[in-house]
Design a protein around this nucleic acid. Sequence first.
DNA 1: AATGAATGAGTATTCATTCAT
DNA 2: AATGAATGAATACTCATTCAT
Lengths: 204, 204, 204, 204
Amino acid sequence: MKHIKRRERESSEIRRKIIEAARSLFLNQGYAEVSMRKIADQIEYSPTTIYHYFANKEAVVRELLLEGNTLFLQALQQREQEGRAAGLNALDMLKTVSDAYVRFGTANPEYYNILFISNLESVSLVSLFDSGRFKGFELLEAGLKAAMEEGCIIQGDVRLIARSVWSMLHGLTSLLLNFEFPMAKSNDELIAFTIDTFLRGLSR
Amino acid sequence: MKHIKRRERESSEIRRKIIEAARSLFLNQGYAEVSMRKIADQIEYSPTTIYHYFANKEAVVRELLLEGNTLFLQALQQREQEGRAAGLNALDMLKTVSDAYVRFGTANPEYYNILFISNLESVSLVSLFDSGRFKGFELLEAGLKAAMEEGCIIQGDVRLIARSVWSMLHGLTSLLLNFEFPMAKSNDELIAFTIDTFLRGLSR
Amino acid sequence: MKHIKRRERESSEIRRKIIEAARSLFLNQGYAEVSMRKIADQIEYSPTTIYHYFANKEAVVRELLLEGNTLFLQALQQREQEGRAAGLNALDMLKTVSDAYVRFGTANPEYYNILFISNLESVSLVSLFDSGRFKGFELLEAGLKAAMEEGCIIQGDVRLIARSVWSMLHGLTSLLLNFEFPMAKSNDELIAFTIDTFLRGLSR
Amino acid sequence: MKHIKRRERESSEIRRKIIEAARSLFLNQGYAEVSMRKIADQIEYSPTTIYHYFANKEAVVRELLLEGNTLFLQALQQREQEGRAAGLNALDMLKTVSDAYVRFGTANPEYYNILFISNLESVSLVSLFDSGRFKGFELLEAGLKAAMEEGCIIQGDVRLIARSVWSMLHGLTSLLLNFEFPMAKSNDELIAFTIDTFLRGLSR
DNA sequence: AATGAATGAGTATTCATTCAT
DNA sequence: AATGAATGAATACTCATTCAT
């Protein structure tokens, strides 16, 4: 193991297969079902092989977490840039980024689960502040600050408000993922309505 | 099992110990960590003894779920009645019941987890519509309908709006339970701010 | 327990229920499925109650064995007497008693299993020579002796021949019980053919 | 499991130890007593190790069953060829193959039990018609057909007669295995006498 | 680079049985 | 006469992991 350059190991094809298998198990069967042996079976390697690429199960899950973070941030940032390119005002920016948040969650349930729902104590080593969820949070805080400066929302403690917005977005996403039930209206309408309502509440 | 008198069994002290141990494990370590053996260890009885009181693990968890439902509903209804007694208008009723929801969750994290976060597929036998979470939902719909009639909130699809409110409350609660991080303001302020903001968004 | 007269205990209604439940479990699910708890469940008493009537599981099974013996012997003897009443000759007597043997087995699979197939080591305490199967065997030996004296079958070691006949009857019965498979002819024909053929082989 | 080379696994020494231990438990204590733990104890490995070689308990027993089938058939076929080489007539062929059947059973009680006595419902996956007992049965049917054509036994439904012969052989074997009791004559004499008598009954 | 071998600890559940009442 | 309480030992099976090769 020692003579292999870190780079090569990390970009190994098997390494990718491993975390893809883990992700798929996570998605289809839940965290409890992600076992080293099941991953190994899925990629048709021996369980031992996994230990060649990851120190232990936690490391696999952590990788998944990091990957999810990256993709999550990318999704938010891309929509932000699109908004900026379209010349949106601060309020509409908030709206579009909020929408991006929920879309990411519903489109990538396995990642959203890993990031925000499963209480991965075993992975809490990844300290909260390293974790990309807080980069996403900073992005949100920045957006709110801008909106305050533009005068389109109320003045107030930015962190408090950001957390409040996040709560609304998280609740929306996680109920969509876990408790769908019959509604006359579509999920899209629910998403739009909830975000709009909350932001209207914030507006001056 | 039929030969045992139900009454005596259900009021047994050990029975209580069992579900309390289960509840505590649930709270501290998550569903996956609730094992019959661990429960037994905690109450200092043999694992077999648990089977004297519950048919299997699912029965233990189901009991916990039912208990949580009952307490949750009671909490909401009590606050509703207090509000009614205090002669609150429809909007303030919504506010107070919303507050009760979040308070229940933060005060009873183990129950809130069982009810709304852990995806207890194994216990899904307790059909969704019997389950108290939907009684709570009906209570919310009724409150919204009243507020619409009083003209203090916008007109709209009651079910959609109820789900929207629930999303906000659930997000608030579950982030409080799982992701506390430093804020200048207190959790109480966050709760009040979030509920107020959302309801302001709903107001005419 | 001590103050109860043996007679009463043995004729108790619950005692009967217990062994009937055991018999039914034996029949429907096989020996491995006869458990004290299952018996108790079936009769709707507590498992402990069974120990009021039987020292342990072995005692229950032993009782079943004794009962099977009795019934088995009765079946053979009744047919013998009927044959005698009908004035059958020695060879026809052998035939009719042989038929009775197989009929008993196929009509009472649970008893036949207990008596001759399940290797109830735990019950082997009931010494072979007390066991009624040997009374049945004596009956067979007597029949053969009579047939020899009448000159309708070959002379020979009676015990050897009796064991030989028994082998044929047991094979017939136990394959009927455990390995039915498609045949153009009926089981009745198979039984008659096998007994006839064997006895023809014995005839002079 | 797919990632392990089948060849190496199947020829493993431990694999052999496992099934030998299982066979011995089967013989000495009956099917119900074959437990993974007991096998492990006997070979002085951990129970987990067994799962390295067999998917589950059923797989162990199935292997035993298949092995028994193979050996059983080989025993019958070998004697048949010897008979053919010796130029035996059809009736003597029946005799010698019958003898081979009983010899196999008494020489390999554990296999005979697995094949014809224990009711291995759990292993019934191995469909009856694949199973060697039916290949053995076909061999018997063929022998009878030949004997009919040679005119040395009565004409009749071959399947019925084959089943009848099988019954006799099975009864002989299984009583020899399970109920030995004092006789002046030897088991060999019993076997020869029973087979001869039955076949005499079949002769013209 | 990959894996076969091996395991200790754990999972839910069932069993026959004892004992005090 | 009947049972509630309790248990130690067993069941099949899964898990993450280590180690020598």
